[in-house]
């Protein structure tokens, strides 16, 4: 360990991959939906997971993306306006009486 030289992320990636094309943070961010969708080729997936394992900012980005998806899902639960409900229940009663 050489504490005087701080390794650049690129060096860390190279050390792990022995010359395989490295995945940058930008590439990871571009591929993050493919990753979450389970749509990555096995080699690419391995490189992405390796990158995540040594890159806290990318881990943070991934966490924030998951949180974004959860926040978007919160829009699903919405109220039905009293007005709409009144109209729809009247429709239902008329239909049921007719059947």
């Amino acid at each position: 360990m050489q504490p005087s030289i701080e390794p650049q992320p690129a060096d860390v990636a190279d050390a792990h991959l022995h010359g395989a094309p490295q995945l940058t943070c930008e590439k990871l961010v571009d591929a993050i939906t493919d990753y979450l969708e389970g749509a990555m080729a096995p080699d690419d997936l391995q490189r992405l997971e390796l990158h995540l394992s040594f890159c806290p900012p990318c881990q943070l980005y991934l966490d924030q993306m998951k949180l974004t998806i959860a926040a978007t899902g919160r829009l699903r639960a919405a109220d039905v306006s009293a007005e709409a409900e009144t109209v729809l229940m009247a429709l239902f009663r008329a239909w049921a009486a007719d059947a």
Partner: peptide, 20 residues
């Protein structure tokens, strides 16, 4: 460091609480 973060994301304080 081409392709690595220049402006990395900052933590969202109380992320769960505020985002949700």
């Amino acid at each position: 460091t081409v392709g690595y973060w220049q402006a990395p994301p900052e933590p969202w304080l109380d992320a769960e609480g505020r985002v949700l």
